[in-house]
Design a binder for these strands. Structure first.
Length: 514
RNA sequence: GUCCCCAUCGUCUAGACGGCCUAGGACACCGCGCUUUCAAUGCGGCAACACGGGUUCGAAUCCCGUUGGGGACGCCA
């Protein structure tokens, strides 16, 4: 997508905005952190870091019904896990607090009072039922549902009387005539007729503030320079700009991000599989892979051909100008590829801590730390990690080094087929005999013994190595034997909850069951 | 119904000023090589400018329309 000329103009002609950039991520703690929201958080963070600005975390918990403390905790935890650190906000210091909307009610009341005093807002005595009824009628007549403006111009005496009688009322913004517009940093100039907007409710009848009002007041007080958020808010923006105007304030810059969709082109939801950070974490995705993938969803680096980028590189390259308007479809296959790439370039040593939980959960290593086991595990991980998309698949792959489940041992069909052949079995038995003599195996002795078997049986190449592999591992394929063998031998000497058999034990078990 | 937004391979995308685009890269898929096997890896292949009109010597790129998709129209956020 080519960017609009004015955008280019704006981005290049604007003076250095460094140090003035203040952005915020403002989630509501009403559920688990969704990848769509993570991307919003990520883009805010990248923009802040790129411009040496400030990244603020604000919690929008004005929906008392649905907000919960456990979601807020999870939220902070998820952001930290992803490495999206914030400079001001909940859980941090900051001069523009409090950063939880439920702690800011007094502020909203003040601003509301001001708007009322200046006649920029008015009291509306219509009941919810009444309004709902009108809306339904309008919809039935295929008309645009809109507030009638019934209470817009009530006589002051009338208003006084109703207040005295204790009638409940909401506070609505008096929307002015004319057009409202703004230049979105992603979408460009968007203008509409103000008349399309019904006088928005600022304060509910219970005096609690509404989202649009809080949002404006907070962004104003927190000196937000750029509002980067989901494109669902595109139509809220005009409403909010009207509120900024009424408050006599200058609105910040806006940048709206397109939605992330599922493979079927519908909004990403539960039925598309994992959608929350929590789930990705549990499946063993690496945060750096998730961050890298999400950054590429709707944004692209200026240079082609390099997609594996560290957070530092992305920060350096990030630019709102290169953000796509189209909604992007979340592609699990590509995320898996990216995660695999990160897993493979991370040494086993560094993976141990992150994978430990999965191995403990599978009953493969003890719960208590043991350096010898860690060391061995690191090598097991290095050996099998080329096969996995995410860390939770590691224990399954590590099965290759653990003991056979049952007696008789579980031998794969492929291995069984190989060993059924008399000559192949002879190779395996000769190899086993030599191992019995030697006691245990090392990569060197393995090579020696293989050479001896070759001489004794006259078999070579795959006819030699296949039977040995089958007898040793019970499978027809797998990692290199030279690397596997020391792990068998060393594993058998470790104190593991599930036994690892030595080479000799494995050969006995397999050949004994034939 | 009214308003707003979007539209390049199956997916993510490159594409500023219209010519360098017989449209490039990545994922996925297919084939080949390497390897005692599998995986990894290397190389190669398949595959797109939604449609219709303009403007222009020339359009993926500019304009209009059509179609398709998304969003908003709350005392939700």
């Amino acid at each position: 997508m080519r960017q609009d000329a004015w955008r280019h103009k704006f981005m290049t002609e604007s003076p250095d905005i460094s140090n003035q950039v203040r952005v915020r991520f403002a989630p509501s703690p009403t559920g688990y952190l969704h990848v769509g929201n993570v991307r919003t958080a990520l883009f805010n963070w990248l923009f802040a870091r790129h411009h040496n600005g400030t990244f603020i975390l604000r919690i929008e918990d004005t929906d008392a019904e649905r907000s919960a403390a456990k979601y807020e905790r999870q939220l902070l935890d998820d952001l930290e896990w992803l490495g999206l650190d914030w400079d001001e906000g909940v859980g941090r210091d900051g001069s523009c607090g409090p950063y939880r909307q439920s702690d800011r009610y007094a502020v909203y009341q003040q601003y509301a009072r001001r708007l009322l005093d200046e006649d920029k807002a008015f009291r509306c005595f219509c009941s919810e039922e009444e309004l709902e009824k009108v809306r339904r009628e309008q919809l039935a007549r295929k008309e645009t549902p809109r507030y009638s403006g019934k209470c817009r111009n009530l006589a002051p005496a009338e208003v006084e009387a109703r207040i005295r009688s204790g009638a409940p009322f909401t506070l609505r913004l008096r929307v002015r005539p004319g057009t409202v517009g703004f230049s979105d940093l992603v979408f460009g100039r968007i203008e509409i007729e103000a008349a399309q907007i019904s006088d928005p409710v600022l304060l509910r009848s219970d005096k609690s503030p509404t989202y649009n009002f809080c949002c404006v007041v907070d962004d104003l007080m927190m000196k937000i320079s750029h509002v980067i958020r989901g494109d669902g808010h595109l139509s809220n923006t005009h409403r909010q700009i009207l509120i900024y105007e009424a408050l006599g304030a200058r609105a910040p810059q806006f940048a709206h991000l397109s939605t992330i969709l599922g493979p079927d082109g519908q909004k990403l939801s539960k039925r598309h599989g994992a959608t929350s950070v929590e789930e990705f974490r549990r499946q063993g995705y690496l945060p750096e892979a998730l961050v890298n993938y999400l950054a590429l969803l709707g944004w692209s680096p200026p240079a082609e051909g390099q997609e594996i980028l560290s957070a530092e590189e992305i920060i350096r390259l990030f630019d709102l100008e290169r953000v796509q308007k189209n909604p992007a479809i979340f592609d699990n296959a590509k995320l898996d590829w990216m995660n695999r790439t990160y897993i493979n370039k991370t040494p086993g040593r560094a993976l141990v801590d992150r994978a430990r939980g999965f191995f403990i959960g599978a009953g493969l290593i003890p719960d208590s730390p043991d350096p010898a086991i860690d060391d061995w595990l690191a090598r097991v991980i290095d050996l099998v990690k080329t096969h996995v998309d995410h860390l939770d698949q590691l224990p399954g792959e590590a099965d290759i080094v653990y003991g056979f489940e049952s007696d008789p041992p579980q031998i794969g069909a492929e291995a069984l087929e190989i060993l059924q052949e008399p000559e192949a079995q002879a190779v395996a038995r000769e190899f086993a005999r030599l191992v019995e003599e030697k006691g245990n195996l090392s990569p060197e002795t393995y090579r020696e013994l293989a050479a001896q078997v070759k001489e004794a049986t006259g078999r070579k190449g795959r006819n030699l190595f296949h039977p040995i592999r089958a007898a040793l591992t019970g499978r027809g394929s797998g990692p290199e034997l030279e690397k596997l063998i020391p792990l068998y031998e060393e594993g058998s000497r470790l104190n593991l909850p599930r036994k690892v058999m030595s080479c000799r034990e494995r050969l006995r078990a397999v050949l004994g069951s034939l």
